[in-house]
């Protein structure tokens, strides 16, 4: 079975935040909860790079390992989801996650919080597929509709890729190959003329 992954091509990401807005509008995410965000380093200097980050749906996801109530689980296709009916809002997953993905709708770092919210890969949640409960708690279920996550679908430069790991790594490999060719091989055009 296909393994779902995200890949953000930093050579292409222009920090337009289109992915963030697509995610929020499409899934009706409350203000203050960031399932996805764009991080920029070296802003305003040569070497400035931006990368769009959300839950990466890790293999051996640390959030699953630390969850004391087994609210977080991984689907066969690799997508990591949370069951909001079970989550107690303890925040362990937030501490364990290397990407800062888990979000909490209310409260501070210590004290009472609501159920954890994070990127669902636009695959809804454990509630019945396409049900009102699923839409309200988790957002759209585009995967069940055969569509890619909104963020990647709306990416203006196709920097953010989402889908079957084999397919997206092929796309990226092709880009990397092209970047290393052409005018980089100085003089080939003149010397060999394609022969």
């Amino acid at each position: 079975m296909a393994r779902m992954k995200f890949l953000c091509d930093v050579e292409r990401c222009i920090d337009c935040n289109g992915c963030v807005i697509a995610c929020k509008e499409g899934n009706n995410v409350p203000v203050g909860v960031n399932r996805r965000r764009v991080i920029t380093i070296n802003e305003g200097r040569p070497g400035e790079r931006s990368v769009s980050i959300s839950c990466m749906h890790c293999s051996d996801a640390p959030c699953i390992a630390v969850c004391p109530v087994k609210a977080i689980y991984q689907r066969e296709d690799g997508i990591v989801l949370v069951n909001k009916d079970i989550c107690i809002g303890c925040g362990y997953c937030f501490m364990a996650c290397p990407f800062g993905a888990p979000q909490f709708p209310s409260g501070q770092v210590f004290g009472a919080r609501g159920a954890m919210d994070k990127c669902t890969f636009c695959a809804g949640g454990p509630a019945e597929t396409f049900s009102e409960k699923e839409r309200k708690l988790y957002g759209q279920n585009r995967i069940a509709e055969g569509k890619p996550p909104l963020c990647a679908a709306m990416c203006s430069t196709k920097a953010l890729l989402a889908g079957d790991a084999d397919v997206i790594s092929d796309i990226f490999r092709k880009r990397a190959f092209q970047r290393g060719s052409g005018a980089g091989a100085w003089g080939w055009d003149k010397a060999y003329g394609g022969k």
Partner: peptide
């Protein structure tokens, strides 16, 4: 996307 394509593919 077209500018970055020229950068990538045509160097």
């Amino acid at each position: 996307q077209h500018v970055l394509y020229a950068k990538e593919v045509n160097n």
